[in-house]
């Protein structure tokens, strides 16, 4: 037995035969719901934003370094690949931002009724999409 958790997982079925009990209900037995989907998206978008900080720091350090370094960073950001990265990062930012506010609302003890959880979830998705389009359009207009 590798671990004490192994011992806790063993049990007997109604016929007395030994069975391995699952550690916890596994995620794949559930149909995807708006609550669980938005929850894991919050974490995924957070990790995506963490990767995005590499681009942010590179751009900042390039601006502080030299014309050549800045031209390289600005060149990537102005390319198609750069646009896709920035668009993805913008969506991740606004989703994590809006859903983060939803989390803060829960933290003060509000919005826990299932109807409210569903309504704020849909609001977060709609708001993050609208903000992403607005940000990208405004950014494109400024170039």
């Amino acid at each position: 037995m590798a671990d004490v958790r192994e011992a806790l997982m063993s049990g007997r079925n109604s016929e007395g035969a030994g069975v391995r009990r699952p550690l916890s209900p596994h995620l794949q037995v559930y149909r995807p719901q708006i609550t669980s989907t938005l929850s894991i998206l919050h974490r995924l978008m957070g990790v995506a934003l963490a990767v995005g900080t590499l681009l942010f720091v590179w751009w900042l350090a390039a601006a502080a370094s030299s014309d050549a370094a800045f031209a390289l960073a600005a060149g990537l950001m102005g390319s198609v690949v750069g646009w896709v990265l920035i668009a993805g990062w913008t969506l991740a930012l606004w989703y994590h931002f809006c859903n983060g506010i939803r989390h803060l609302w829960w933290d003060v003890g509000r919005g826990f009724e299932l109807s409210e959880v569903h309504a704020t979830g849909k609001l977060v998705v709609a708001a993050s999409l609208v903000l992403t389009v607005l940000t990208l359009v405004a950014g494109a207009a400024m170039r």
């Binding site: 601006a63 014309d67 800045f70 031209a71 600005a74 102005g78 913008t90 930012l93 940000t135 405004a138 950014g139 494109a140 400024m142 170039r143």
Partner: peptide
């Protein structure tokens, strides 16, 4: 985000 939009495509 507002600052980044305002400086999109700005020179060094």
């Amino acid at each position: 985000v507002i600052g980044a939009i305002a400086h999109a495509g700005a020179s060094r």
